[in-house]
Write a protein that binds this DNA or RNA. Structure first.
Lengths: 235, 235
DNA sequence: TTTTTGCCTTGATACATGTCATAGTATCCC
DNA sequence: GGGATACTATGACATGTATCAAGGCAAAAA
């Protein structure tokens, strides 16, 4: 399943940007001792919708998608996770089973922090729990915005918005224009909330209009202002 | 604007079910002293999207809708609030402006708790902040489910689901079948995420199929199992 | 009462988007 | 390398839904 390799949290390159940068030094050491770090291959599932949570996951390196699977089996991607982010906290906090499945989008290194320890520290460390609330609020804000856009915006606008969202989340490669992640057309569609064919067709249109360039799963954003205009963002 | 009347939190009929039932008695007294309770008329706006938050609101009595207004001005209702619930915490916690507008669905009595006090107590009171995290997690879970359904389910199923959601939130009247809230067709549509005419048409169909009965804004759920089946719920 | 106003309802129509089918293309793996 | 598998692409088509338009009904105002 996963190859253990345990870098210290002190060495974790994202410890300054992650939620744990807010944590008390003391607590951080406890986490460091108890955590288990594992390597996951691209496509591997970290946790499954419906399973019971035993802790939270902290991304050391890599990219993860969190997705619901609808009745008909089609997946809806609800979040993209990057290094420094944590995941699995929602189920833990509401004491329910996972409502989403976490799948590695590329080879990733992920730390696991046991439930009891995490909840325990959360009780003691006010600034950590405040940071947790901030994260939850921010996720909720994004989710509500997405609800509004799904209900009101056409697919074309949502696709443009999604491209910008991917850029915001994973950034660009060294060339300054290529999205720094490889997603299948189906995954893009499941992020937008549309059929794969529709996503493909619209991506082709964007390309024809000179907004983007396509090279397999490589997507280059050529004309960001025009993409912003297409996304019709002003709220 | 609003008629002040200040019942003690001790008398608040929902203090046992609200978030504050978790709070320390000491802190509850502080809140009781600082809070300001006001009456709002049906249709009145409690806070506006884009405004800066100065505190949280706790519903003493009444019903509120929280809605985003999309680019084209159409509203999307993102949450229904009832007595005992709090609102406005998201903006406060993430230190941003309100992303939604709160409007009274009926005459309501609402307490206002100043920002500083609330955040202060949240820092000190671990069990209150844990409850806050639980609420946020639960809201986030609901929002993500709604995203999946908006993306994947047809309007007919979503409407059935919405009827069940309203029942869950506001309950039924004494007759045991009438939804205990009066919403316009437009509001129902904005909850479902569809056009008003579509909502009306489908409600008529539901009526013709014997699932519901319509009497103005009164909606009676006659055949709940069939509504559940129509909503196609099994996730 | 009559008028006004705001909602509700229904029909006709157009369009966006999903679905199905087919073929081309890359990718993986033995 | 070659065959299998998965992904991408495009066309044809069906249909769910939004939009536009017009009329009905009921509550509120004059």
């Amino acid at each position: 399943m996963s190859i253990p390799n345990n870098p210290a949290c002190q060495n974790c390159k994202d410890r300054f940007t992650s939620i744990f940068c807010k944590a008390d030094h003391n607590n951080l050491e406890q986490i460091d001792e108890a955590k288990v770090c594992s390597a996951y291959k691209k496509g591997q599932v970290i946790f499954h919708e419906g399973a019971y949570p035993f802790g939270v996951f902290c991304i050391n390196d890599g990219k993860i998608k969190l997705s619901h699977s609808g009745d008909d089996g089609r997946e809806q991607i609800v979040r993209l996770v990057k290094a420094g982010d944590i995941m699995g906290y929602k189920a833990l906090l509401s004491n329910e089973r996972y409502t989403a499945t976490a799948t590695a989008l590329e080879d990733s290194s992920i730390c696991f922090i046991p439930k009891d320890l995490f909840l325990n520290i959360l009780q003691k460390d006010a600034s950590l729990s405040f940071e947790m609330m901030r994260i939850l609020s921010s996720e909720l804000r994004k989710a509500e915005l997405k609800i509004t856009h799904l209900a009101q915006k056409p697919v074309r606008e949502r696709l443009a918005e999604t491209l910008l969202f991917i850029r915001e989340t994973y950034g660009l490669e060294e060339d300054g224009s290529t999205l720094n992640v490889r997603l299948s057309r189906e995954e893009i569609a499941n992020l937008v909330g549309t059929a794969t064919e529709s996503a493909i067709r619209l991506l082709s249109e964007f390309k024809k209009d000179g907004m983007i360039e396509l090279d397999g799963k490589r997507i280059r954003l050529l004309d960001v202002p025009e993409i912003v205009r297409t996304a019709n963002l002003h709220d």
